[in-house]
Simulated assay, not measured.
Amino acid sequence: MRSTGEADDRRDLERLALEDWPERAGARVRSVTIAGNRAKVALAVNGNYDYWVYYQRDGGGWQETASSNGPTTEWEDRSVIAW
């Protein structure tokens, strides 16, 4: 069973990832992956366009660090990507 904190983080990340997309884009969350203070949200936009948004948590909550139409490998490893 997931902790309440993790469920809250997932809801926050879903909201953040979707907030900049207009309703007509039909954006929907495909997955949310949290690794410590980093997170990846995969979206489907317009039915078949894949898009990824990456976040890092700091004292102010989740902050977007990168987004693109292709996935970023090793996003969760601080020794590889230093956001």
Rank of each mutant, 00 (worst) to 15 (best):
M1C: 13
A82G: 15
Y55C: 12
A44I: 09
T72W: 09
R30W: 07
I34Q: 02
G70K: 06
N48H: 00
A17W: 02
G59R: 14
L43I: 00
V29T: 04
I34W: 02
W52C: 03
A35S: 15
A44N: 13
L43Y: 08
E76I: 05
D20H: 14
V45Y: 01
N46C: 13
A42S: 12
L16C: 03
Y51H: 13
M1D: 05
D50E: 11
R30H: 11
P22A: 11
W62M: 11
W83K: 10
R15I: 05
D77S: 09
R24H: 06
V41F: 02
V53E: 10
T65D: 11
V41L: 02
T73F: 03
E64L: 13
A25M: 10
L13N: 11
K40H: 11
E74C: 07
R30F: 04
S68Q: 14
P22E: 15
A27W: 03
R28N: 03
D58F: 10
L18Y: 04
P22L: 10
I34A: 01
R78M: 07
E19T: 03
S67K: 13
S31N: 05
S31Q: 14
V80L: 06
W83M: 13
L43W: 00
D9E: 02
R2Y: 13
W62E: 14
D8R: 08
G26S: 00
R38Y: 00
D8G: 03
P71C: 01
Q63C: 11
A42R: 12
V32C: 10
A27V: 00
T72F: 04
A66Q: 05
G60K: 15
W52T: 01
G70Y: 04
S31D: 15
E19A: 14
R38L: 01
A25L: 11
Y55W: 10
A27R: 06
Y49Q: 12
G5P: 07
V41N: 02
R38A: 06
E23A: 15
N37S: 09
D8P: 04
Q56H: 02
R11F: 02
I81T: 05
Q63L: 15
D12M: 05
A39T: 02
G59A: 13
A42M: 09
W52D: 07
Y49W: 14
G26F: 04
T72D: 03
T65G: 15
T33Q: 14
T33A: 04
